[in-house]
């Protein structure tokens, strides 16, 4: 059985834990519970005729009080960098984290999740943000942990990219 470590990274409260919970357990709660440390979940996926175990690392959000430890990214086969579409500040953190991933894990498959897409009336990302992300030529997937939009597709896309590598 192939086993791959993937990390969910992003500013605090962007919905990393909620995305994982939606994907692994099909559950959602809109109450914000901060993550301290790392929680690892497992999920079995199929890519073509291959079975793959995803070790999904839910890594504490980056903010003034916590910085990302290189250990957390080490050995990752792929990363999902989460942006909260209602908080432009989280876009800047995502860019910084993308740099950290490149620095510590090299050219592994990465994709950006634009989360909380269900909150359309609160969307604050501008074209300039999207253009900046597009310039990385990495997949950008709109997600909502609340209604499940794009969640399975996002993990599946990353799994497929990791198998290709």
């Amino acid at each position: 059985m192939i086993q791959k470590k993937i990390c969910l990274l992003g500013a605090f409260a962007v919905g990393k834990t909620s995305l994982i919970k939606r994907y692994v357990s099909s559950l959602y709660s809109d109450k914000y519970h901060t993550t301290v440390g790392v929680k690892i979940d497992k999920k079995l996926v199929s890519v073509g005729d291959k079975a793959l175990t995803l070790m999904i690392w839910d890594v504490a959000g980056e903010d003034d009080y916590t910085t990302l430890k290189p250990t957390y990214i080490r050995g990752a086969g792929g990363c999902i960098i989460v942006v909260d579409t209602t908080r432009p500040n989280t876009f800047e953190v995502a860019l910084m984290l993308h740099g950290r991933v490149k620095e510590h894990a090299g050219d592994i498959p990465v994709l950006f999740a634009l989360n909380k897409c269900d909150l359309k009336e609160k969307w604050l990302l501008e074209d300039k943000h999207l253009n900046q992300l597009a310039a990385f030529q990495l997949p950008i997937i709109k997600t909502s942990a609340k209604d499940g939009l794009g969640v399975d597709a996002m993990f599946q896309a990353l799994a497929e990219r990791m198998i290709e590598v």
């Binding site: 605090f12 914000y32 901060t34 301290v36 903010d63 003034d64 009080y65 916590t66 500040n89």
Partner: peptide, 17 residues
Amino acid sequence: QEVERLQLMRNGLLVRE
């Protein structure tokens, strides 16, 4: 206690944002 402390601070940061 650390979780509680960070939860309070991050809630504060969210309100500030």
